[in-house]
């Protein structure tokens, strides 16, 4: 699995702002210990974030991605896999 670029976290931050109305720094987002709950993204917000990423990248992250990925790191890893490492 390739490493996740800062640019990808930047995109995730903009998706979280768009879908959840929450401003979060790249630094905090890319920290492995940070969870979506810590940031304040609720369960419906997770659904919206996952769906928006799928639209933007034209990928399928799987039906349970919003429940499975508790952290931004886990979600970005899944995105990385879905895009064959090209994120």
């Amino acid at each position: 699995m390739s490493s996740i670029s800062e640019q990808t976290y930047q995109e995730l931050a903009s998706v979280i702002l768009q879908c959840g109305g929450i401003t979060v720094s790249i630094h905090r987002l890319s920290h492995r210990g940070t969870t979506f709950a810590d940031i304040g993204v609720d369960s419906l917000g997770m659904l919206a974030v996952v769906r928006e990423l799928e639209h933007r990248r034209r990928v399928d992250l799987g039906a349970t991605a919003a429940q499975d990925c508790r952290t931004p790191h886990q979600l970005m890893s899944r995105l990385c896999e879905a895009c064959d490492g090209e994120v």
Partner: peptide, 8 residues
């Protein structure tokens, strides 16, 4: 209104 409430 706080942004997180605006979007929902």
């Amino acid at each position: 209104i706080e942004h997180r409430y605006l979007v929902q």
